[in-house]
Computed example of a mutant assay.
Amino acid sequence: MELNENISAVVTGGASGLGAATARLLASKGVKVALFDLQEEKGTAVAAEIGGTFCEVNVTDDASVDAGFAKAREAHGQERILVNCAGTGAAMKTASRSKEDGSIKHYPADAFNWLIQINLVGTFRCIAKSAAGMMTLDPLTEGGDRGAIVNTASVAAEDGQMGQVAYSASKAGVVGMTLPIARDLMSENIRINTILPGIFDTPLLMGAPQKVRDALAASVPFPKRLGQPEEYAHLALAMIENGYFNAEDVRLDGAIRMAPR
């Protein structure tokens, strides 16, 4: 897909981190970008910076997502690009024993479901609604794209650590649905790919002590540093621009393989 001012995009989780970096890179190519996020102040600032549109969206709510797409399409027209970066994390063991008194507790199903709803169902909700919209468009060229979708999973989809059962399940679900969605949409000229980031310097890590950040960076085989959001954005752009890139799940991780803990 050739990127220019006639193309519009929606980036979920676009107010910060991987989403903001991707939105900035798309805008630098002339693409009109709408940001879906719950962080109004940050999202409005990024939108103003790139000449885009901020839409306050909760990806777990159908009405909120519908309203976001309506606002984005009113501002920029039907999107041909969707990049899903909205997501969160939480840590809890499946079952554990207290070191203090030996009491046993288990991971509440409601808490497990909360993470699944955001990271997996929220991603699918945006994909389904965006793909339906893309199907109203003509392909850009004969045999070319109607649209392109990029999802965000995690290396935890393949080597989740202790306490990451819900997070790993949610991200493995994103990986698992990439191929069948590509097959569902193949006759409509819509491609979909997924990135599995390793340890990236995003807002999730910004609150960590420097000692922790340094230890995480040292655990990466090469280069021995945290990944930068701009590196994620460049891979997302390659997936969008390269018309033969479809149904792939690609690790972007400096060759790391996560240890059990």
Score class of each variant (00 low, 15 high):
153 A>F: 02
31 V>T: 00
48 A>S: 14
170 S>Q: 00
90 A>S: 15
174 V>Y: 05
171 K>G: 03
98 S>Y: 09
32 K>M: 11
23 A>M: 02
126 C>P: 00
111 A>H: 13
29 K>W: 08
231 E>Q: 07
30 G>W: 05
186 M>R: 12
184 D>G: 03
82 L>Q: 01
38 L>Y: 01
148 A>W: 01
225 R>P: 03
98 S>E: 04
123 T>F: 05
92 M>P: 00
145 D>I: 08
84 N>I: 11
223 P>K: 06
250 V>W: 03
62 D>Y: 04
106 H>S: 15
88 T>Y: 14
6 N>E: 11
86 A>Y: 07
161 Q>D: 06
258 M>N: 11
219 S>L: 01
26 L>A: 02
56 E>R: 15
75 A>Q: 04
235 L>D: 06
225 R>C: 09
163 G>A: 07
40 E>Y: 06
82 L>V: 05
140 L>S: 11
68 G>T: 02
52 G>H: 09
256 I>R: 07
53 T>Q: 10
83 V>S: 04
107 Y>Q: 11
232 Y>G: 09
95 A>L: 13
134 M>E: 07
231 E>L: 02
175 V>I: 13
131 A>V: 10
23 A>F: 03
255 A>M: 09
141 T>K: 11
17 G>I: 02
257 R>I: 13
78 Q>C: 13
216 L>H: 04
179 L>E: 15
191 R>I: 03
76 H>S: 12
231 E>A: 03
182 A>C: 12
199 I>M: 12
14 G>I: 01
210 Q>P: 00
42 K>N: 15
169 A>K: 02
216 L>V: 02
96 S>I: 11
37 D>I: 01
238 A>T: 08
81 I>S: 00
165 V>R: 10
129 K>N: 13
89 G>E: 15
162 M>N: 13
50 I>L: 10
99 K>L: 15
121 V>S: 08
130 S>N: 03
171 K>W: 10
146 R>S: 10
239 M>Q: 05
75 A>S: 09
7 I>P: 00
144 G>R: 05
99 K>W: 13
242 N>R: 10
35 L>K: 08
100 E>H: 15
259 A>C: 08
13 G>E: 06
132 A>D: 15
156 A>G: 02
120 L>E: 08
213 R>L: 14
231 E>D: 08
255 A>W: 05
128 A>H: 13
12 T>E: 04
241 E>Q: 12
142 E>K: 10
132 A>R: 15
221 P>F: 05
129 K>S: 13
245 F>L: 08
230 E>V: 03
211 K>T: 14
17 G>V: 05
24 R>V: 01
258 M>Y: 09
54 F>Q: 14
221 P>S: 06
181 I>M: 15
30 G>P: 01
22 T>W: 04
66 D>I: 11
59 V>Y: 01
258 M>P: 00
33 V>M: 06
45 A>F: 02
93 K>H: 14
25 L>C: 06
156 A>H: 04
